[in-house]
Design a protein around this nucleic acid. Structure first.
Lengths: 169, 169
DNA sequence: AATAAAGATGACACGGACATCATCTTGCTC
DNA sequence: GAGCAAGATGATGTCCGTGTCATCTTTATT
């Protein structure tokens, strides 16, 4: 499957959810509940993001996590590299192991170009754009026109794990 | 890692190797030896390719496999879809599970465009181009000019598995 | 200082892609 | 048609990305 790892999607969702209360601290448990992500795994992802300086984590009583910068100042590229590492772009589209710099396959230059496009797109797209028309953007959309698409109410009606906000005994 | 599966690379190498004796039957064991691919896994891949009509397999004594069509008539897209299935292109670059057709992420249109480019490139690149300047292409290059780049002799001098033609006790 | 609430962290479990093996089936050669 | 050389196939093993757990560390509150 040609796409970024699922972890990237998790990180973006978590950061988007985190932005809903700007400046304020969110709790990992709470975010996990709202985004329906596995809590312990989310903690790991948040850890990666914190080490890269994308989120600020405050330990101890009354602690929590918050965005370290404004969403406009966080690019998708930074998120991707935080969770997938610097080498997230494969060296050869066709996964040919002997497609090296001095012996390239016919799609090499093409893939280089594509990789550049993707990297550029990720670099210039910010977290603000992601969360704008999607999760919290409903409020903004409502402000513009009272009822336009009317596809607001239904979400998360497709997965096997229904509405359980918490799954501990 | 954003790239196609390793199996795709295996398939391409095997088909390229197979083309070296056009019209003639190659043995899976022999091809596995030459390409340094695991023999049983290669057999599986060849099976997928045979079911999609890309290679012709002849069983029994004096059997073997051969290309079902000329390399010019085999596109990379056909190879990819044979081994990875029709759904090799992820629906969302960022792996956002709720990035559906009516609720798209900011990179959706971009990814659609990129996907189209990749699909088109794979469709218009044929096996002939892959094997041309690479594996068997050395002969062609020599025919044009006796000694041009002079980088002919060195190959496979970069990996950890050196020259072992076979790895059985 | 004791406590409780929060994230950090390393070990472990699971699942699917990748790889291997043993065995079955097929079809040539004689 | 007997024997054998070859691919086909299903069961099994391995590894890494993903997900879970228990425990440790930190810090505000009292």
């Amino acid at each position: 499957m040609l796409c970024l790892s699922q972890t990237t999607g998790y990180a973006i969702k978590a950061l988007g959810c985190l932005n809903e209360s700007p400046g304020q601290c969110g709790l990992i448990a709470e975010i996990a509940g709202r985004t329906r992500l596995p809590r312990p795994y989310l903690a790991k992802i948040v850890n990666s993001l914190a080490r890269k300086g994308l989120v600020a984590a405050k330990r101890g009583h009354k602690g929590g996590i918050s965005l370290a910068r404004r969403p406009v100042d966080i690019s998708l590229l930074q998120i991707v590299e935080a969770v997938e590492g610097k080498e997230w772009l494969g060296p050869c589209l066709l996964a040919l192991d002997d497609c090296t710099s001095d012996n390239t396959c016919p799609t090499h230059d093409f893939w280089l170009d594509i990789g550049g496009r993707i990297r550029r797109k990720l670099a210039e797209t910010t977290l603000a754009e992601i969360i704008g028309p999607r999760w919290q953007g409903a409020a903004q959309a409502r402000r513009v026109s009272s009822a336009k698409g009317s596809t607001a109410g239904r979400k998360a009606t497709h997965g096997p794990t229904a509405v359980r906000p918490d799954r501990r005994p």
